[in-house]
Design a protein around this nucleic acid. Structure first.
Length: 875
RNA sequence: GGAAGCAUAGCUCAGCUGGUUCAGAGCAUCUGCCUUACAAGCAGAGGGUCCGCGGUUCGAAUCCGUGUGCUUCCA
């Protein structure tokens, strides 16, 4: 078979993903093996794959694939969440394009469109995950508005309500006037904004014409002012106790109040108080019994209560009112001012603090066990630094606003009579039964259900239990087997939104934590360090990257640069590195495959014994290291380690050491061992780069479909020969040193040399002679005790190597320089070691093995110095 | 205003419990190679006051304090 020049990822990816799926490797059913379970953080159903997903899901896939090889029954559950605000916004936009206004639709009509939209576009992101190679159990795909899931959400709502943990109340909330819904604090993004600070004077209700000046960035809100507040210790305003002022333009008479809340330094030290439109003002209003005048409609236009500009947009009014204030002489001055302005995470509209009746969930009791679990490492966070953040939030937890003024989502199961009596019940019939108890004349068609939906996170917090069918039967076999799940992989930015709440619901409803470990990935940033986001448009097109470089290369690039919890700057050079790595392995395969037709039983393979033995030990050594790294989620370090093992140890050293000469036969043993070694390496790499490894695994021995790498059990690694590892390193050292000397003396690669070795370790050289000879292109290697005439001397450890070449003029100056430089370094090194060892406090305080190591360093350095001095003097 | 994180080669970053397996990787740079798997490659090389200062210690890139700079979270 003709093998292509490079790895052809496009065909390979399609073929293997389909094959793994068909073979059932992705699907899990409970059995006697231990389970290793991950529930995917459900992406937004409107989403398309971006770098954050690529990172997050590659991490999960690496964990799943490795666990599978280690004998776990792995289950990785895919799914999406309904993302009420984002989806509703998309559907509204889609309808608008069709010329349909949401206002003209009934709730049911709208939902019909929404479901159509979901069926059409909602699965895109899951399909894209297949391109990335994700080993997901597709039979378990869930959606947060599936019938049973919906029922679970309603059931939890009823339960919490009955426990007294859910209540209705008027509070200051974050209002998104574009989406016309409340937002939780976490959904508001504060952006630095260039604003203006307006100084406005209010006429005092005194006989003399006196004024008090306030500063505000939101002049349109003065129409809702119900007081002016100053600091009780502020001498400027002490005389105003008990006085009143008039709101400009509308001449509302409002009191001057005194409160220590005021920052005397800010503005004029006098604050206008608008309880309906500012949280702090609201609290002041409560304290001082101020009336609340709500001057805004839900769409951000002025309400009738404003009395002026009714129906006009708040920002247009801001401009107009400034003009009006100027004309009336109330505007004193304007100042440039930068402040933090809240924007909606989803619609980017400027948030209005607004008083509103909402549904709330009490968090204090739920938070307690969830906080303890993390603090006591019953649920372990990686990296642990996020425990602090978690503790801080959980310790100061506020009640959760769970209602959203949207249609797309789980409709709150609260029911009202025409005179606004309310009950909470699963169905209309139950609600009717309850409500009619106190009103016998009530008919069922008079009852109307709450319009609001629940926050999306109020459904996704049930994810780890509900994907296994908690609602239908909490004792079902799947839930018993897979819950608690093993590892949650997510971004730190949703630690409160989601992670904390899943822990709460897990304890509340399962009595158990939802997962053992939480691994927080970093945030993917672009080259300039900006977070990749849709709004910036700086996220590369992942599918294009996969197409260009291959899924393995994309996976490589995100994994190589993502130490746990640290942000990663995404750089295309890493994609190239990944692609090149695939090709390197592909070419190594071509080399080995090329030997197949030249396998012979008669060929000597003694020369290769050392190489094989050494490589096997290197793999074992690395296998042990990898185990430790995976335990700590040092995933990028693990990949680097595997990369080095394959590229350096295997390709650069091992293959060169065992490679037969041009068109020479290769022994059956070397061939077979090399393939076995290759297969072990492919297995170690497979979790990171599944496609290229599976492809080559099959090609190496011409395996049949079904005889696959993906489910192959991984051996337990342990090293039993430290000596050969040291000898391998020594051999590399000798080879590099001789090559360096060749280079420095301008030898061409083809120039042959004669190498003479003055050593105490003849056994080592005898075992590696053939390898050494080929690697340094030596015609002959012999032992000696004297430096041959006109030879280059090289010192490696305490061995002296002499290089002779015919027809080569040797530059002793270069050589002398090199030896002198080495000697100088070593003398300095020895001096530092001597100093340490002659320090009494070191000898008495340091651990014995450290002292022993220093002694060894001392004697090694002394020996080497001696050898170097001898070489120098013989020049 | 409160809190956290980061500062290591030209660039992007590793460096777990303090000790030469500790100063490392990739990219970039320099030298030599179209060597019979791979030029997306091979063989070598150069390059760093581990941000400044102070402390703990026999010993600090690593621990503590402090200053500076950047980032993020909360108010």
């Amino acid at each position: 078979m003709e093998l292509s020049k490079n790895f052809q990822h496009r065909e390979s990816e399609l073929q293997w993903y389909e094959h793994w799926n068909q073979a059932g490797y992705f699907h899990s059913v409970p059995d006697e093996r231990p389970a290793y379970t991950i529930v995917m953080p459900p992406p937004n159903v409107t989403g398309v794959l971006h770098m954050g997903h690529a990172l997050n899901n590659t991490v999960q896939d690496v964990l799943i694939r490795r666990a599978k090889m280690q004998g776990f029954n792995t289950c990785w559950v895919p799914g999406t969440d309904h993302a009420s605000i984002a989806t509703e916004a998309k559907v509204v936009a889609m309808l608008r394009e069709k010329g349909i206004d949401k206002k003209d639709l009934s709730r049911d009509e709208f939902l019909k469109y929404a479901w159509e939209w979901k069926e059409k576009y909602g699965g895109i992101i899951l399909q894209q995950l297949k391109k990335l190679g994700c080993a997901l159990d597709w039979d378990r795909t869930h959606f947060t508005m599936d019938k049973d899931y919906y029922a679970a959400v309603i059931r939890v709502f009823l339960d919490l309500y009955n426990k007294g943990l859910i209540y209705r109340g008027v509070k200051m909330i974050n209002w998104d006037p574009r989406a016309k819904t409340a937002l939780s604090d976490e959904e508001v993004i504060f952006k630095q904004t260039n604003s203006k600070l307006y100084y406005v004077q209010y006429r005092l209700d005194t006989e003399r014409e006196e004024y008090i000046t306030i500063a505000t960035v939101r002049p349109e809100t003065i129409l809702g002012d119900t007081a002016i507040c100053v600091h009780p210790n502020d001498p400027r305003y002490a005389h105003l106790k008990g006085k009143f002022a008039f709101v400009p333009l509308i001449n509302r008479r409002i009191p001057i109040i005194f409160d220590e809340y005021i920052d005397m330094e800010f503005g004029t030290g006098a604050l206008k108080v608008t309880p309906a439109h500012d949280l702090n003002d609201y609290n002041l209003g409560l304290k001082h019994n101020l009336p609340v005048i709500d001057t805004l409609n839900d769409d951000g236009t002025m309400s009738e209560a404003a009395t002026l500009y009714i129906g006009e947009d708040r920002f247009a009014v801001r401009k107009k009112i400034v003009v009006a204030l100027k004309e009336s002489g109330n505007l004193i001055k304007e100042e440039e001012y930068t402040n933090q302005v809240g924007h909606s995470e989803r619609t980017d509209a400027v948030i209005e603090p607004r008083l509103s009746m909402q549904w709330w969930c009490k968090m204090e009791d739920l938070a307690k066990p969830a906080l303890e679990a993390v603090m006591e490492d019953d649920i372990a966070f990686y990296p642990a630094k996020f425990k602090n953040l978690y503790r801080h939030w959980m310790g100061n937890i506020k009640d959760w606003c769970i209602s959203r003024q949207l249609w797309w989502g789980h409709r709150i199961p609260a029911w009202y009579t025409p005179d606004n009596k309310m009950t909470v019940a699963a169905t209309l019939e139950e609600a009717f039964a309850e409500l009619s108890k106190s009103d016998a004349s009530l008919t069922i068609d008079q009852i109307r259900q709450e319009d609001d939906c629940l926050d999306t996170w109020f459904s996704s917090w049930l994810w780890p239990m509900e994907v296994f069918g908690w609602n239908e039967n909490p004792n079902n076999a799947d839930l018993q087997y897979y819950y608690p799940t093993s590892t949650l992989v997510t971004a730190p930015e949703i630690i409160f939104f989601w992670v904390a709440r899943m822990i709460m619901s897990g304890y509340e409803y399962m009595g158990k934590k939802p997962f053992d470990k939480v691994y927080f990935t970093g945030i993917v940033r672009d080259k300039q360090g900006r977070k990749m986001s849709k709004s910036l448009g700086n996220s590369p097109d992942l599918l294009a990257l996969i197409d260009d470089f291959g899924a393995d290369a994309v996976r490589f690039s995100v994994m190589i640069s993502s130490p746990a919890g640290n942000d990663l700057l995404f750089d295309e050079s890493q994609l190239e590195q990944g692609r090149n790595f695939s090709n390197k392995i592909w070419n190594a395969m071509k080399l080995v495959k090329g030997w197949e037709e030249r396998v012979s039983d008669e060929t000597s393979d003694e020369y290769a014994q050392f190489a094989i033995h050494w490589m096997e030990q290197r793999i074992a050594e690395t296998g042990v290291e990898l185990e430790a790294m995976f335990k700590d989620f040092r995933l990028s370090e693990a990949l680097k380690t595997i990369y080095t093992l394959i590229w350096n140890d295997f390709c650069s050293w091992y293959l060169e050491w065992v490679k037969p000469g041009f068109e020479q036969p290769v022994s059956a043993k070397v061939f077979d061992k090399t393939i076995s070694i290759f297969e072990q390496l492919l297995q170690l790499l497979h979790p990171y780069m599944p496609f290229v490894t599976e492809e080559i695994y099959h090609l190496l021995r011409g395996r049949k479909m079904g005889d696959d790498l993906m489910p192959l059990a991984m051996p337990a690694y342990n090293t039993d020969n430290a000596t050969i590892l040291k000898q391998g390193a020594m051999l590399q050292d000798v080879i590099t040193s001789v090559r360096d000397a060749r280079n420095k003396n301008q030898f061409k690669p083809k120039d042959q040399i004669i190498l003479s070795v003055d050593t105490q370790h003849k056994d080592f050289y005898n075992a590696t002679l053939d390898i050494l000879q080929r690697q340094v292109n030596a015609e002959e290697i012999k032992f000696t005790s004297e430096q041959p005439a006109s030879s280059i001397a090289v010192v490696v450890n305490t061995d002296k190597l002499y290089i002779e070449a015919f027809g080569k003029v040797i530059d002793f100056g270069v050589q002398k320089e090199q030896l002198a430089k080495d000697l100088e370094y070593l003398k300095g090194f020895l001096a530092s070691v001597d100093k340490k060892l002659s320090n009494e406090r070191f000898v008495s305080n340091a651990k014995p093995e450290i002292i022993e190591a220093e002694r060894k360093k001392q004697s090694d350095a002394q020996a080497k110095i001696k050898v170097l001095e001898e070489s120098l003097s013989s020049l």
